[in-house]
Every structure is written in structure tokens, then in C-alpha cells.
Design a protein around this nucleic acid. Structure first.
Lengths: 185, 185
DNA sequence: ACAAGATGATAAAGAAATTCAACAGATTCC
DNA sequence: GGAATCTGTTGAATTTCTTTATCATCTTGT
């Protein structure tokens, strides 16, 4: 009963009807009452996660799928602006592949980090996924709690929503090729 | 407060700590009480979707990301060179980054073409887009009608539906890093 | 036309969530 | 040595969710 970025009620109703189920049918399968489903679909209550899970089990559909269905259904439309371009200090060089293209599904970058170059103490977080391969030198990559030193030929891949940071601890330049989707640049 | 397939409490705690927040800090940002977060993390309550959303907004993290984020065990983030799956054949070596990950939005490949290596006379066509950066050596890339010789530092980006072909005309290996979306491998 | 069954909505009672306020254990500071 | 401030936990009060039971509406079949 407040501002929800995703309209759970409408969403559930759409999913239920998509599967050709009545409130009572779904309720019976899910082990809840039809009244509850009615209230949820009207957004008159915000179900507990456990209840929503029970309901979705009756469809059946996973919680993750339920919440990502927006993205799957209408991907390009609802993507917020890519924030976070704080990487741009002088010691980091970023070369974007295909920057002139209007529509791209990825950002591919050729990156060069000078010795001691750092994306900053404040960890980076943004939408999507990113990965890359180290071409030359070494880079220290922190993702979530983990920190690892990667050398030429090593690689990485993670969800960009996890806080991350790049730092070059060596005495020579580090070079790598990265890709992120959806495009951050 | 019943059987949940995904352990929301433990999950939230892990996420919170990953962002370096205390229960009280997060509670303050999210506009809920620290007690609630404590109870949720102990799985002594199953939060309503709206509450969970408020809490995640304080991080900030989207609901979809929360349920999609698989931090079971250790999320595989780092991929040492030796662990990159080689899915190439013969004179072409294709090392896939994150091949074990269930859901990826991209395929990132470390590719090596031996002298005279060729993706074949029959042009490749498939869905999506692809791009890359040449790291070492030279490669002859044909896209549509155009053919071009690319050297270290050069790059490419095109729609994969356009017929294309890679060939190494030089006498030394050619190495490049590529990405394609949606994942081809 | 009427009964029988299905649909979704709702009030009140019951169960579970959230908040409030207090607690004990660490750490820091003077 | 404390006082101040941080950490996470918890009992009781409050608010919200969930069920029970009932209602009105719409089909369907005879």
C-alpha cells in the first residue's frame, strides 16, 4: 500500500491470466485463499515474500522470474540512464568500440590503467553485467568481498550491481578488454 | 515464516555486508527500524514485498537483482587463464569467460587464430551483435561486402546477421578479445 | 425461468508483520 | 577506569497481512 516501482498486483494478475487460471484455481494450487489473491491483485496489501512465493509456486513460477519479467517483457524501455562515469581520472584510458553507433547492446572497451590507477575508493555499482580479459600487466579486481590479482590471460565476469573496483598495483601499465551489457558508455 | 526455497534472511545479510552497511545504517537509509532488519536476517519473519523493497532501496538494489543474484557458495567472478573453457577446434582457439555461469547476457571470448586459420569459406550469420579488439598480430575481417586488415589496437563492431568471416593471413598467431550479445556460446 | 456453479470482492476475526523501547556486548575516546 | 557510541538482539505494543465466511454478479445447463 505505497509506491512500488513494480506493480506486484497488476503483475500477478497478468501472469495468472497468462496461464489461464482463476483466482480460486490458483489459490487452491498455491494453498492460500482466493481472497488473498484478490487483495494482492488490487494492491490493497503487499504480500509477504513467503506468501508471494507460495502463490507463484502454484503457477508455477520462480520469484526471480516474476521480478525479472518486466525486463524480459519490455527490455529497452525501462532501463534507467547509466550513471557512474567517475572512472575518468587522467591515469585511466578508456577507448570505446563503436561509440558512434546509435543503438548498441553492449559497450566494448579497450582499457589502459597506468601504475597506481584506481577507479576510486568508492565502489562502483550499476545495472547489467560485465566481463573482460586481461591482455597485459596485472590488475587488482575487487568484487563484493573478494579481491584478486589478475594477470595476462586471466578473466572476470560479474553482475555490475555488486560493488566493484579496479586498481593497478604494478609498476607497468595494465591493459584489458572489457564488455558490459547493457552498454554503460 | 515457513519453508522458503531462497533464504531471504541470509541473502539480505550477505548483500548488506557486501555493501559495508550496519543494520542501523541500512535501516536509516531505508526508512525502517533496525529491529526489523535483524528479524528478517534471522528469518524470524518473512518481510512483505513492500518492506523488502524499502530495505533494498536503501542499499540500493532492485528486487529483481536481489532474487536473481546467486551468491550460493562463491559467485564465480575470477577466471584464471587455465580455467577458460577452450571451445575452439583445430587452428582456432576460443577461450570462453564464465562458461559455467548459468545465465549470462554476453559471451566474452579470448580468441587465438593460428596462421592461415579461417572461420570458413561459408560466411557466418547469426542473431545479435558482436565486437572486439585485436590484441596481437593481424586478422582479415570480412563483413558484408567489405574486407579489412586489422592490427593490434584496431577494433570492430557489427550486427551478427550480416555475413562475416575471420581469417589470419599473417605468419604469426593473431589474438583478440571479443564479446557477443546475446550469448552465442 | 430457475437452479447450480463459477467468477471476483469484502468485513471481521485471527495470525503474522513491523515498530518502539530497552538490553547486553564491543569498540573508541578522554 | 569509565563515558560515549557503536554493534546486533528481543518483549510488548501496534500495524498489516491472511483467513473465514458471506455477498453480488455472471455463465451454464435443464
Amino acid at each position: 500500500m505505497n509506491i512500488m516501482s513494480i506493480d506486484v498486483g497488476t503483475h500477478l494478475k497478468a501472469v495468472r491470466q497468462m496461464y489461464g487460471l482463476s483466482q480460486r484455481e490458483l489459490a487452491k494450487r498455491a494453498g492460500v485463499t482466493n481472497g488473498l489473491i484478490s487483495l494482492i491483485e488490487q494492491n490493497r496489501v503487499s504480500p509477504s515474500v513467503s506468501s508471494l512465493k507460495k502463490v507463484l509456486d502454484g503457477i508455477p513460477m520462480a520469484l526471480a522470474d516474476f521480478f525479472t519479467l518486466d525486463l524480459a517483457g519490455k527490455p529497452e524501455v525501462f532501463f534507467p540512464r547509466a550513471e557512474l562515469a567517475d572512472i575518468g581520472s587522467g591515469s585511466v584510458e578508456l577507448r570505446l568500440v563503436g561509440g558512434r553507433l546509435a543503438k548498441r547492446s553492449m559497450s566494448i572497451l579497450h582499457e589502459r590503467y597506468a601504475p597506481n590507477a584506481d577507479t576510486g575508493e568508492e565502489m562502483l555499482t550499476h545495472a547489467g553485467e560485465e566481463g573482460g580479459v586481461i591482455v597485459k600487466g596485472t590488475i587488482e579486481l575487487s568484487v563484493g568481498g573478494d579481491t584478486r590479482l589478475l594477470g595476462a590471460g586471466d578473466a572476470y565476469y560479474f553482475k555490475s550491481s555488486i560493488p566493484h573496483r579496479f586498481r593497478n598495483p604494478g609498476r607497468e601499465d595494465c591493459e584489458l578488454v572489457s564488455a558490459s551489457s547493457p552498454p554503460t558508455f
